[in-house]
Design a protein around this nucleic acid. Structure first.
Length: 707
DNA sequence: TTAGGGTTAG
């Protein structure tokens, strides 16, 4: 009976019967164990499997080849490779089934090298791979994207006559698809005489993986019409939902959602996790959140998906709230959860949580993963700790292009252009090819550190030597570089010579440069161009009005502001936030609703008095409202970054430096005020604004007033 | 044999 259940399910019954047998005093024989272990393996039931292993040891049956083979398979299927290997190594005699179980374990757990090593070893031991061996290694080859090895195995299978078997052919189809050879996959699919549901799922998945997503959906519809598939499996539905997400096709996604409800497949955890992710990827975070709340069963994938979804849709605080819930519900964070949390920390400049997540990642062994380290580098960099980011970078055993790009961009936003360039040289020394994102980081770094000649040089080499054709982002960096450097005419000529039509951002960069260098005539011309281009952005009104004010042309400034009002542009409120003891506190300019508001105001007034003694006078041109001078000073005093800094001075341990993040660019008055505050309080203050970092210390800022 | 959650810039 146990044997019957172990073969055909329900597997739980096999295990229940085994325990019933033991409790009723009937002694299981060595013929019982392989079956009950097979049931544990099918269910991935670690607890019972381990206990039954203990029974086996007590009975002294741990030398039996069939039982041990079963145990190797059980541990491998449960992802416990170390235990699987222990049993495997302990076997004095191994048949091909044992080798295949061990190989399969490595294959599905992503241990490609170990897997290939075992295949060689088994041949050295006089065993020839059979079709089960081939079936076992194909997923590993597919996962590792080893096209050459895939072709070798394909050829071997043909010579040995393993092909024309639905399981082998489906595996080979999948290898070609994962390696990007969609046409090979299509050909195999076409000539297969017998196809099962898994083959069809694999083919749809192949289209999705190879960016022929629409064709994948068409194939699914065609199969549905031709009734090749009666009721699609959860795996197929998940693949189709993923296709909708990839195409951003919400309407289609909703239809499939309805279909899964009809089939009751929406109760399947994998399907519901994919649906959840589909809503988030289509930008419907509210739908995703509602769906998440309504899920009866949630696992770590559900949490990871909603956390990542929140961050992608700009709701980092919500992501952290859900992360807390996850910990309360005792679902262990996986590496993909950490992958969602780290960008949330980056966005919120939540260093303490970032550091905790780093610690957790080390304990769980996630820091072996390149992507996790890349996310850590970004987190430290965006939380103001560029030197710690560098330590993480240096400690990595292997780096990919993202690691280098993240580090180079990090140096860029911190205004450490020379280090960005040095790192770019190192990158070439180790043979890592830069991509277009590398150059965005490098050019940004040059422009924000005033390295005009270097920027021009690298832009030239990017085009000529690296054969990367510049994108709008690269042109933007160059206009910014030339403009900030005071080469306004050259920047203008550069724009005119661009092979593509410059967008609003390009002209805005030039306008911003006009403001820095007080070039009114060019500013007016550029401003006209922007208006002609439309839609105008708010920053253009602000820049122009600001420029007129600085030049004392009050009427013109007022005229621009009226026009801004008439066009319906409203300045989005400045918002700053700061993390204290792991809690993020947010402040909006002029906001007096904070519980500590009175104390904060008092602190600011006190600082203002001290500052005036040191020679500070308010930069009133940054207030746009039509109000009296004294009132203008008051408005400036309550800019969000000042509120956040005052709050930090009141609540943060004096030994700690202050890190404030802001959604907009820091204004000239705040910039100057913060310098004075570091003089008065002897505290270090770092501000991350919408464009870069400002490290204030002893009355000076790391940006050299150049931003 | 198919499969759900993920890093850089903008």
């Amino acid at each position: 009976m146990i044997r019957a259940y172990a073969w055909n399910g329900p597997f739980e019954k096999a295990i229940d019967l085994y325990y019933e047998m033991v409790e009723s005093g009937v002694r299981p024989t060595k013929y019982t164990y392989p079956f009950v272990i097979k049931a544990c393996s099918a269910l991935q039931d670690v607890e019972n499997g381990v206990e039954i292993h203990e029974h086996v040891k007590r009975k002294g049956l741990d030398g039996d080849v069939y039982i041990c083979t079963g145990l190797v398979d059980f541990y491998a299927k449960c992802g416990l490779l170390v235990e699987a290997r222990q049993v495997f190594d302990g076997m004095c005699q191994r048949d091909i089934v044992a080798w295949n179980a061990m190989i399969s374990g490595c294959s599905v757990n992503g241990l490609y090298l170990e897997m290939m090593g075992l295949v060689l070893e088994m041949q050295e031991n006089g065993l020839t791979p059979n079709s089960s061996t081939i079936v076992a290694i194909l997923p590993g080859i597919a996962e590792a994207n080893k096209l050459r090895e895939g072709k070798v195995v394909h050829g071997y299978s043909m010579r040995r006559g393993f092909v024309n078997d639905v399981v082998v052919d489906t595996g080979i189809l999948d290898v070609y698809a994962k390696c990007g050879l969609l046409n090979y996959g299509k050909r195999i699919f076409r000539v297969m005489s017998i196809k099962n549901e898994i083959t069809r799922s694999a083919m749809i998945g192949a289209y999705v993986t190879c960016d022929s997503t629409q064709e994948g959906l068409e194939l699914f519809e065609q199969m549905r019409m031709e009734e090749d598939i009666g009721s699609p499996s959860p795996v197929m539905l998940a693949t189709v939902v993923r296709a909708c997400a990839k195409l951003n096709d919400l309407e289609k996604g909703r239809k499939i959602h309805g279909y899964t409800v009809k089939l009751r497949s929406n109760l399947d955890l994998m399907v519901s996790n994919t649906l959840l992710s589909m809503y988030a990827k289509c930008g419907r975070i509210d739908d995703a959140l509602n769906f998440f709340e309504e899920m009866n069963l949630k696992d770590s994938v559900s949490f990871s998906a909603i956390i990542a979804g929140c961050v992608q849709n700009g709701h980092a605080e919500e992501a952290l709230r859900i992360f807390q819930k996850m910990q309360l519900s005792r679902v262990d964070p996986e590496s993909a959860t950490v992958m969602g949390i780290l960008p949330a920390c980056s966005h919120l400049a939540a260093l303490q949580l970032g550091v905790c997540t780093h610690g957790y990642s080390i304990v769980r062994g996630f820091t072996e993963d390149i992507s996790i380290c890349n996310a850590l580098i970004d987190m430290y960099s965006k939380c103001g700790k560029i030197d710690i980011a560098r330590i993480v970078f240096d400690k990595m055993n292997k780096r990919d292009v993202v690691s280098w790009n993240t580090m180079i961009s990090g140096y860029g936003v911190h205004g450490r252009g020379k280090e960005a360039i040095q790192l770019f040289y190192n990158m070439q020394t180790v043979g890592q090819m830069p991509d277009e994102i590398t150059f965005i980081g490098l050019l940004f770094a040059c422009s924000h550190s005033g390295l005009v000649a270097e920027g021009k040089y690298w832009f030239f080499r990017m085009c000529e030597e690296f054969k990367i054709s510049p994108r709008m982002d690269h042109y933007l960096c160059m206009v910014d570089l030339l403009g900030r450097g005071g080469l306004l005419d050259e920047a203008y000529r550069f724009i005119q010579n661009m092979p593509c039509k410059p967008d609003v951002r390009i002209w805005s960069a030039l306008l911003a440069a006009c403001r820095i260098h007080k070039h009114i005539i060019l500013a007016e011309e550029v401003s006209n161009k922007i208006q002609y281009l439309g839609p105008e952005s708010l920053s253009n009104f602000v820049l122009l009005s600001n420029l007129y004010t600085t030049a004392g042309r009050w009427d013109d400034a007022a005229h621009v502001r009226v026009k801004q009002k008439d066009s319906g542009f409203k300045k989005s409120p400045g918002c700053s936030w700061i993390e204290i003891n792991g809690v993020v506190h947010a402040f909006v300019g002029g906001d007096r609703s904070h519980p500590q508001s009175a104390k904060i105001n008092e602190k600011l007034k006190e600082l203002s008095t001290e500052m005036k003694k040191l020679g500070y006078s308010a930069e009133l041109s940054f207030v746009y409202q039509d109000v009296e001078e004294e009132e203008k000073e008051q408005i400036l005093l309550y800019h969000s970054e000042k509120l956040a800094v005052a709050f930090a001075l009141l609540n943060l341990d004096p030994s700690k430096s202050i890190l404030v993040a802001k959604n907009l660019r820091v204004c000239v008055d705040c910039h100057s005020t913060l310098k004075y505050i570091t003089l008065i309080t002897k505290r270090e203050i770092t501000v991350r604004d919408a464009s870069r970092f400002h490290h204030f210390r002893d009355g000076i800022c790391s940006c050299g007033d150049f931003w």
